[in-house]
Structure formats: C-alpha cells, structure tokens
Design a protein around this nucleic acid. Structure first.
Lengths: 187, 187
DNA sequence: TCAATTCTGTACCAATCGGTAAAATTAAAA
DNA sequence: TTTTAATTTTACCGATTGGTACAGAATTGA
C-alpha cells in the first residue's frame, strides 16, 4: 500500500502547474499552499530555500523527465527516425497540444532567467544537441541536422506562444505536422 | 523647442521596457516609478486605471508601431517580396537580434493573457494574416502562404525564447536566415 | 512501549504590494 | 495679474508578500 505521508516529490507536479500558470513571481505562497494542499510549515520543511528551491526542484524534475523520455532515446535509440517521431508525439502529449506552457521557456523570457540560467541553458542545449544527433544518424547531413534541430526546438517554443496567443491548439498541431515533414522526409 | 512637460506618450517606452524585463506582475510600481522617473501621483494622473492601463497603453503603442511599420507594408506594399525582406530586417532590429523580448509573446505565456486576450490575439492574428497576404502576392500558393506565415510568426517567437535561453543572439540570426530562404526562395 | 524523528498548523514578522487623497506646485489661459 | 487647470509631491491606507519560530501531532524504529 502506498505511503500516506507526503513526500517532496509528491508536490512537484502541482508546484509545477502553479509556476506554469502564474510564473515565478506570480506564484505566491498563498497560491502554492492552496494548490498543493500543504501549509507553509510543510512547504518550508521540504523546501528550506523557499520559492527558489521549489522552482529549482520543479525544473530538475522536468529536466529529468525530458532526459529520460526524450533526450536519451534521441541519443541512444537504435532507430533514430522512430525516436524523432516519438519525440514529436511525446511533446504533443506533454504540452497538451499547446494548452500547456513550457515552464523552462517561460523562465527564459522572464527576469528569473538569470537566477535559473544554468538549468534553462542546459535544458535547451541538451534538447537541441540530442535532436541533432538523432537527425544526423537518421540520414541528415551533420550540419543540416544541427540547423534542423535548432529550428525544431525553436518552432516548438514558438508554437506554444502562438497557440496560447490565438487560443488555437491547431497552431501547435500544424507545427507538429510541419516538423514531421521536415525532420522525417522519408516517411 | 520640445515641451518640457511630460506627456503620457513620453513614458511609454520606459514603461514598455519595465514590463518586458519583469513581466506584468514583476513590474512593481516602485520599479516603474524608478525607471520612468515619475512618482506615483503622476503615474496615476496619466493612467488612472493603474498598472493595467499602463500595460494596455504599452500594448497599444507596440501594436501601432507594428501596424505602421510591418503590417501595413505587408498588406499594401507594391513590392510584396521587398516588404517581406523589410519585415525580417525590421524585426531583427526591433528585437535586437533576440536580446529584446516580445512583450505580447510574454503576456501570451503568462497568466495575464486572459486580461489582455483581445490585444494579444489581434496582434498575432493580424501579423500572420498580413504576412500571408504578402506571401501570396509574392507568388506563393495561397494555402502555402498561410502555412508559411503561421510558421514564420511562430519561428520568430521561438527564436526569441531560444536566443535568451541559450544567451546566443546567433540563434535569432540563424532563424532570420532560414526564414529568408523559405519565404523568399527567388532571391 | 518509548523515544527519536518527521511532519504540520498557527501565529507572527518586517517589507512591500497596488492604490488613494489631498495639499503643494507649476504652467497655461483670461 | 488673476484665474484656472494640469502636474507632482508627500503621506498614508489596508492587504498581501516571502519568510520565521515553534509547539504539537503523527509516524517511525527499537
């Protein structure tokens, strides 16, 4: 039977959603308390560093998820073309076709970027490089693979902005189709 | 000789930079006071609606700039290919090769999106449609022009995210080159 | 069973938040 | 010059901010 006690990792999803919806500044402790169901005492017990440590933990969890489900398969997968196709499907599900925001991208635009610069940089650099690796192994010219990878990562972030701005998940879906054609022209 | 009295329009640039750097929530009145040089009294004299009216005025100014310098030329320019090329050059200068954030895109990602939904939607929809119009007149198939336009607007926003995340203006420059090739294959 | 540890609720703190009110000052119109 | 209006300074407001202190409850291992 599952433990009934709260663990640090248990609140990370709710914590992530609060930061996603309201940003770092906008995510007040009152809001966090409400959405996680944990009082301030518990929150500061799990995260003695306060909001900054909470955000850092959320970023680490997100990074871990992408590393395991996206980056690693791209780098180490036997079938790089399948890995690229899987990436597109995974990120579409993860970002709920543009209805969900990328917290790392949001932090990159805000003033908190300097505070989490290393995490933000690492996330995007590793994504780009892992994708470039897969694209090169899939048959693209290495230089073209690097260019395509950068374009794809940027396109995903741009589609998230546009889909939310226009309130149209279709914008995200069309970006996905476009990338599929461009990254996997063999299919 | 210029009037020495402050006008509402005079503080909009500084106001815009504060919102760009800190977001809507992060832009405190103390910060705005400091960066504009205007006390709270003057601020609320010009913007009785407080921060919301300030942000709305900034959005309107940005919208006006893009309408005059980007959208109109795309829609009405005699030489649509030149207008598209000019757009790429203009936005590169405006966003300072990715060192400057798009306030409208930033608002689209944040929780203030609902408050400024109409302005955010209008800005991106008119940009996309004006570009699609120019691309179609430039010789692209109408359906392809619409797709390319959406892709371009998203690519610009994505490049802004990536350039800041990686602290690499080159990411923005490479997006610009990519768009030039794709939107204007005749050059 | 008991003690050690982990966790949580409550009360509290100084600082800052956005916003208001009105007096004091300045500039323009008569 | 006098009147009127536009602008700015200053002081202030209640609410909320992130964070701390700590007692007590719950859980744990021995």
């Amino acid at each position: 039977m599952a433990r009934m006690v709260m663990e640090r990792a248990d609140v990370l999803p709710a914590l992530g959603e609060v930061f996603r919806e309201y940003g770092f500044e906008g995510a007040s402790l009152a809001l966090i308390t409400e959405r996680t169901g944990l009082g301030k005492g518990s929150l500061y017990h799990f995260f003695p560093g306060g909001k900054e440590e909470m955000a850092r933990a959320v970023l680490a969890e997100i990074d871990g998820w992408f590393e395991a489900h996206v980056f690693q398969p791209l780098r180490a997968g036997e079938d790089p073309r399948a890995a690229v196709a899987a990436m597109l499907a995974d990120i579409s599900a993860y970002f709920r076709s543009g209805r969900r925001v990328c917290l790392v991208g949001l932090f990159a635009l805000g003033d908190v970027r300097s505070r989490f610069a290393a995490a933000v940089h690492g996330y995007f650099a590793r994504w780009r490089d892992a994708l470039a690796d897969a694209l090169a192994r899939a048959g693209h010219d290495p230089a073209e693979a690097a260019d395509l990878a950068e374009e794809a990562v940027a396109a995903i972030q741009g589609a998230l902005v546009l889909a939310r701005a226009l309130d149209d998940p279709g914008a995200f879906a069309r970006m996905e189709a476009r990338l599929r054609r461009r990254l996997l022209p063999w299919a």
